[in-house]
Amino acid sequence: MVASARVRDAGGSAGSTLDVRHVSHAFALEGAPLPVLEDVSFTVEPGQFVALLGPSGCGKSTLLRLVAGLEPPSSGGLVTDGRPIAGPHPSRVVVFQDPTLFPWRTVRANVALGLEAQGLLKTQASRIGEALDLVGLSGFENAYPHQLSGGMAQRVALARALVNEPSLLILDEPLGKLDSLTRLAMQAELVQLWQRARFTALLVTHDVEEALILAERVIVFSERPARIKADIRFDRPYPRHRDDPALIQARREILALLGVPD
């Protein structure tokens, strides 16, 4: 684990490729199978920022869990940088829908979690302060999670992921709990961060506008079981603006795909 992390550091933290090949997944719900993903295939290039959109409960979080390696798919395969995903790896970090901070750890210790787990705490401790700076939480190092607001907790969760310098950052509605102002600020931060570190990003969001502010590519899923309904490239320069006519046009098209009249 330590060795692989060093290799990654030495090779620079360029984004990894992700290849999702005919992935189907089903849960067993009260004995009956509940199909959640159906023949989902797409390829993400290194450093690409991809947003996943779809109706609630369609299977987006499930797909992210498969990419993270937390569960194997029922059928099909997931490959990153030419190697099949067989389990979790710190180069693929998830920011979950819930912040799930460890209540018995201070903010600082929560952010340190990844470094500690990989045995990098002694050599890389300075990254913790940088990550906290990045999400605007320096000064709260010694607070406990119950002393934070929902938005602050979500930012700690983001810092906890970023501190690992992932090559694939998996974001499950990471800004969903933030107030609208913080949300806008964090969107800008996320773009800057991604442009600097060039990781590959996979973002699930409910907010079409957010997807278009952040991502170069938007994949729209159908109702459960999720199938790819549309795969849209959106090549506009950053930083993007909400009143860009191209963005407004794309937004209208995507909302129509999702069945919401604009």
Binding site: P90, V93, V94, F96, D98, G114, A117, Q118, R160
Partner: peptide, 27 residues
């Protein structure tokens, strides 16, 4: 102990030992 804690720790590179000593026991 909530499964979500283990998921977080595992994606951050936690070993089995880490999961016991630093996640399960404190929780």
């Amino acid at each position: 102990v909530s499964k979500a804690y283990y998921d977080v720790a595992r994606t951050l590179g936690a070993s089995e030992r880490f999961l016991i000593l630093k996640v399960a026991i404190p929780a």
